[in-house]
Amino acid sequence: MNEFNFTLNGKAVTYRGDPLKRLLDVLREDFGLTGAKEGCGEGECGACAALLDGAMVNTCLVPVGVVAGREVTTIEGIAGTKEGQDIIEALADAGAVQCGFCTPGMVVAAASLLRGNPRPTETEIREAISGNLCRCTGYDMIVSGIRAAAKRGRRSW
């Protein structure tokens, strides 16, 4: 249990260490992927979100042992995909970014939503990001950015 493999952003990796360490700390400290942020450490803010087998999770609540043999996709991984680029471009154009600390988590939430629901309503978008707190934007431009991403990426979702 103190050494296992998992897939990180499409690449097979090996983790050696305490399986109870938080996935968030492993991503940031062991793999140098600092896109996921620690905003609260209690699963309330969503700044640490990543995809686990395609579904959004708060990495601060996932002991890394849980991801053995599974697929973890972080903001760094999402940013390299066509879907990710569509979301990122749409959010940039919409003015969805202010301080940026919640932003990677918002992109992850958008990717998680659009994979399952390529044409979400405004309410569905708001629900999908309800676990991602933002203190700067009041959410409006994030919501319109995700809606624009859905349009922009219609072929890819």
Partner: peptide, 22 residues
């Protein structure tokens, strides 16, 4: 309006905050 100069680095997770520096 113009696209914010800091938008892309923040959206891609490349922007570094104090806890992100080694």
């Amino acid at each position: 309006p113009v696209r914010r100069v800091d938008a892309m680095e923040k959206l891609t997770g490349k922007a570094r905050y104090i806890s992100d520096y080694p």
